[in-house]
Design a protein around this nucleic acid. Structure first.
Lengths: 132, 132, 132, 132
DNA sequence: GTGGTCTAGACCACC
DNA sequence: GTGGTCTAGACCACG
């Protein structure tokens, strides 16, 4: 599982982690029983404080998304069925709408906007394969 | 103009107001010249402090979305960002990246993502012309 | 960095701080990368509320003069305004007009005024190179 | 006596009037015994509230710069000797420095800055002759 | 320790 | 009535 953090978005980092784990579960990419990265290495990789990762995991446990087993690690709990395609598209649509709104205020036209969508998607895909 | 606040999302309240005003403008629900709700009554309606609404409006003014006239009120301004092209693209890229991250975690593929970008851009453009 | 506040000038305190930081940068006394005083100690030293200093720093960040890193501090940023040329000229024009008004009321003629513009611009440029 | 107001400077309007009257006295352009415009017409001309002009005049009276004679009007009091040239240049220099600082942050070069000084001085001079 | 958000309530400038 | 500035003091996110 890979996390993408944006330190400038104003959204608390621990919530970004929470939301990304929940998204992975919702899509079926993370399945019940899968292990999450342990706190210390993940904190180092993300360059955030251990407390921040711990808070995210604690919140996830509180929401019933994961269970922590002392000394062993954190695991995805037996969870709700993953969301169907429409529901997942709906969640991405909410993010996309934010980008559309920003584009309107900054006078970015349709061509540029679509080119940007392609370019950024490809840039992320490339980074992922490169890290394998 | 109707606002929907979520006090438990972790997203700052003033930013929720900012985003909702920007969305209203981008969707054509608010047009240049329209008056925004006055700070004090809106704060009461939303059950937040006056300063919180003031901070949202101040941020909107910094972003060039509204203009405030002391003693008169706040108004939607004619869209015309004073930022240069690079800065504008950079800001839209940041929003787009959030959608890309969400798409990856929810296993939305490239084709669907680009189709979504086109569809949402067109949806907003259509609503704006319909409101005219 | 030393600040001189005048509480009876009618000029908002936070704007006095903003202008003095900008002046320090323009004169070379503060260089890109330099840390600004932390908000709390500075507020104490200036005998103003913490929020007032925070507002000044927030304004400076909006203007691109500094960058703030939550939990670390505030730093002078590399000068590179994201505004387009028209907007930049417009802002300088507003400052220049205040000098012109003052000059007219104090009966400074055109030649003296232009010589003053050259002399002060050069004085700042010289100080910046000397501080390097 | 002509006033130039800047509603966007953040400086209270009444203080702008106060400072401009004091500048005219300091330069010798306004002499003891000279009448100031009466409150109501001036407020109309400047498009500000009568209270704002009244407050400026009250402040000037408090500072001993003018005297008001009920039913007759406001007059420059017997005043300090007007400032000499150097002192007046010093006052304009303070304003000019603000413009230089702004120019530095907005990457306006020397040529543009000097051209701007000439252009704005001429623009004001032109407006004044046109209104005669 | 750093900066960020929010509240409660004061006073000011302006219409 | 409008928005703007400032204070005092709380809690949060982060290192």
């Amino acid at each position: 599982m890979r996390f993408e953090l944006n330190f400038r978005s104003g959204k608390p980092v621990y919530l970004q982690v929470v939301d990304q784990v929940k998204a992975a579960v919702a899509s079926g990419a993370a399945k019940p029983g899968d292990a999450l990265p342990s706190i210390r290495p993940l904190a180092e990789e993300l360059r955030v404080n251990r407390n921040t990762v711990a808070k995210a995991y604690s919140e996830l446990e509180h929401q019933g998304v994961i269970t922590t087993e002392a000394g062993r690690g954190c695991f995805i709990s037996a969870a709700d069925s993953p969301l169907n395609k429409d529901a997942r598209l709906q969640l991405v649509t909410e993010e996309m709408d934010q980008a559309v709104v920003q584009a309107h205020h900054l006078q970015i036209d349709r061509d540029e906007f679509v080119r940007l969508a392609e370019a950024r998607f490809d840039a992320f895909a490339l980074r992922r394969t490169a890290m394998r």
